[in-house]
Computed example of a mutant assay.
Amino acid sequence: MTDNATITPSGQPLGISHRESPTEAMFARFKARNQPAFIGYLPYGFPDPDTSLDALRTMVEHGVDAVEIGLPYSDPVMDGPVIQAASQIALDNGERIAGVFHAVETVAEAGGVPLVMSYWNLIYHYGVERFARDFENAGGAGLITPDLIPDEAGEWIEASDRHGLDRVFLVSPDSSDKRLAVVADNARGFVYAASRMGVTGERDTLGTSPETLVARTRAAGAANVCVGIGVSTPEQGAQVGRYADGVIVGSALVHTLLSDDGRGVRDRADGLRDLAAKAEALADGIHNAR
């Protein structure tokens, strides 16, 4: 139960939820099997709201353990061309933040761990407490905020504590040891280690900096560290899965639903078929990495 009798300096109730973190429970299961988890990303509303729900369900049914449901945004500073194109299609189709909770329910009902990845401005304008309440009620696990640092996340930290939600902050190879410690101390669920500086996208090679970053982040106190940005093949997934607690794949999955010119959508049946095949291949590489 949440005790709302005490009020914080910001005027919000201080009650803390004792709900177990579904994300941490997932990692515990995988660690017991000495396996990394597979986290897949797809923007809600792409290619259209109904098909996106089918796509999210397809991902879980074909090996994705946790799903980052993206909230499309008009100024996606971290996103590469593939995700930007998909997000713009979703926005053009009239995607609204309220609809994402149907996506959260879909992932949860399919047996996956539902995460939302969003730029902070969208959450702020929706209402932090309102979002946390609606997200919890839909069965959500946690929020990934690429442009929100712990130092400026007081309202979200309070709301996530009240509703038992994970908060996932990002670190990069350029993060100082002090910054890593701050992130590790304030994160819940896992820390998102960006494999390199720059935007998302498929890459031919990953280099050694992600492995070093994972080791540094663990040394700073993080219990679970997942690597994303640039992972696009089963071989790369296996490479990262040898040392990370989870492997995050976005653009390679989104790509299966885009047309060849990268500006439109593929035939629905063909796209879902290729998404299933891509998810299965990546899951096989990641889950058998060790």
Rank of each mutant, 00 (worst) to 15 (best):
V171D: 01
S172E: 02
D204N: 10
R196T: 08
I149N: 04
V128C: 02
S118I: 11
V183I: 15
S118T: 15
L170C: 05
R133Y: 06
A215Q: 15
R133C: 04
R96D: 11
E202I: 04
D134N: 15
A98Y: 12
I157Y: 01
S160I: 03
G99E: 13
N137Q: 15
K178G: 08
A220C: 14
A103K: 10
L206D: 08
S175Y: 04
W156L: 13
P146L: 12
V116K: 01
T106L: 07
Y192C: 02
D204W: 01
L148Q: 03
N121W: 09
E136V: 05
D177A: 14
N224I: 06
F169D: 00
L143D: 03
N186E: 14
D177F: 13
N137V: 03
R179G: 08
P150S: 07
L206E: 00
G189E: 05
G112C: 07
S160C: 12
V191E: 06
T212M: 07
G201S: 11
L213T: 12
R188V: 10
T200A: 08
A223H: 15
L143G: 01
T217I: 08
V214K: 06
M117N: 05
R188M: 09
G221M: 14
G111L: 12
L91G: 10
S118R: 02
M117Q: 08
V168C: 03
D204Y: 02
S118C: 14
T217W: 02
E211A: 15
V214H: 11
S160W: 14
A193V: 09
E202M: 14
F101W: 11
G111S: 09
A108S: 12
R130E: 10
S172R: 13
D147S: 10
V113D: 01
S175I: 07
T208L: 13
E211Q: 15
E95H: 14
G221L: 15
V168K: 00
G198S: 09
V104Q: 05
V113L: 06
I123K: 08
A220W: 06
H102I: 11
A103W: 03
M197E: 06
F190N: 01
S195F: 06
E202Q: 13
L206Q: 01
D134P: 12
M117I: 15
M117G: 02
A181H: 04
L91S: 11
N137A: 15
A184F: 07
L143M: 09
T106M: 13
Y124R: 07
V116N: 01
N93Q: 14
F135C: 08
S160V: 11
A222M: 09
G154F: 05
N137H: 14
V107H: 02
